[in-house]
Design a protein around this nucleic acid. Sequence first.
RNA 1: GGGGAGUUGGCAGAGCGGUCAAAUGCGGCGGACUGUAAAUCCGUUGGGGCAACCCACCUAGGUUCGAAUCCUAGACUCCCCA
Length: 417
Amino acid sequence: MTYHPKSDFMHVMMTRGYLADCTDYQGLDEALMSGVVTAYIGYDATAQSLHVGHLLNIMMLRWLQKTGHRPITLMGGGTTKVGDPSFRSDERPLLGPEQIDANIDGMKQVFAKYLTYGDGKSDALMLNNAEWLDGLNYLDFLRDIGKHFSVNRMLAFESVKSRLDREQSLSFLEFNYMILQAYDFLELNRRYGCVLQMGGSDQWGNIINGIDLTRRVLDQEIFGLTSPLLTTSDGRKMGKSQGGAMWLNADMLAPYEFWQFWRNSTDADVGRFLKLYTEMPLDECNRLGALAGAEINEAKIILANEVTTLCHGADAAAAAEATAREVFEKGGVGDDLPTLELSSEEVADGISIVQLIVRAGLAKSGKEAKRLIAENGARIDDAPLTDAGLMLDRAALSSPVKLSAGRKRHALVRVAG
RNA sequence: GGGGAGUUGGCAGAGCGGUCAAAUGCGGCGGACUGUAAAUCCGUUGGGGCAACCCACCUAGGUUCGAAUCCUAGACUCCCCA
């Protein structure tokens, strides 16, 4: 299937590695050639922030806009009340409406950095499917929409089938998710002329359902396009690292740590990540990704700078780089390191080093902090820490102190005032 | 409504009266080697506390010198039948 696309958007998707599958390459390509195409990606409001795993799709929307088309970011205010069962082994806990709204607010902040919203032809739209899902009347919905779905067929979708095969129960509530998502696509087509849904390849089944439904109800031919589910080249899921999710909101993950995440990419991923997560020219991505040995470290820094600039701005990227150079190349201290601020009352009676390590985020529990010390992994101002019972008083903290866990993780502790 | 199975550490999954904080694997963390890489090797890995020590195998009681393991009640999950 070596289709040669004529449209800019398809060309970018194919050459930069965003494309896993498409329902109709030629049809979509032609639609993109003949005018402004409106496309959407849906986001479930299951967390307070988007994370690196979402970034791929956000970049797709950004390219869509750059190539002259109109992106829609659809918040799943309604569908999140149901929960997407696709390829999940267990049911997610149901979220309450307040939580969902709060999550949507958190997620919206990020989109504005990548997309231009407004009323122009290719300005992005921010929508929430609660708008049409919340008010649905059950019987009407069953008669108008439900009649188009075959349970036999729904059961055959891989996303559902795998769950049933493993004898894991699937509640009726979750089973309805794909119908609601299909309905979203139909509504978006009706209201905004949206003709393309994009998503990760785990969304293939859901997307197909929307296309079928729209064909049956409106007799409209629309398209679906999926991106590969990314794993790092050592086989881990994208976006999980050091145990925690790589959030895109600055208040949940400091830009410095975001920068570090990219800086620590595996060699084999660098070229691919440059293509997917930055807008650098392809040749340059290939050249940088092909650097061998220690040289590729410079490419990793470029990658970190580019991605951080998009997400947090050029200043944040520069600050992160400066701190990283200071800390790793000179063994010093940078302003951008994660910092724990203590009030003077807190240190009045002294504070244990174990507490400091935990509160600075270098260990998850006191036990872990002690273990770190016992394993000679902890340092204070670069001096090895040997005494887990060490107490620090106000004098010891009169100037900021650098704590380190292992070679890579550092934090500052200072007393306010 | 009836019958059965289950609930163990971040996850998977052993254990079925003492030697169990609990095998093993994954994941995590630290170290060596390097390039803030990968692979490999070594170590470590429930929680609270400065400590002594305390809490811990769904919850609440109980039996025992002694319980993750036995009994009773409850909560939740799954399967089969109606």
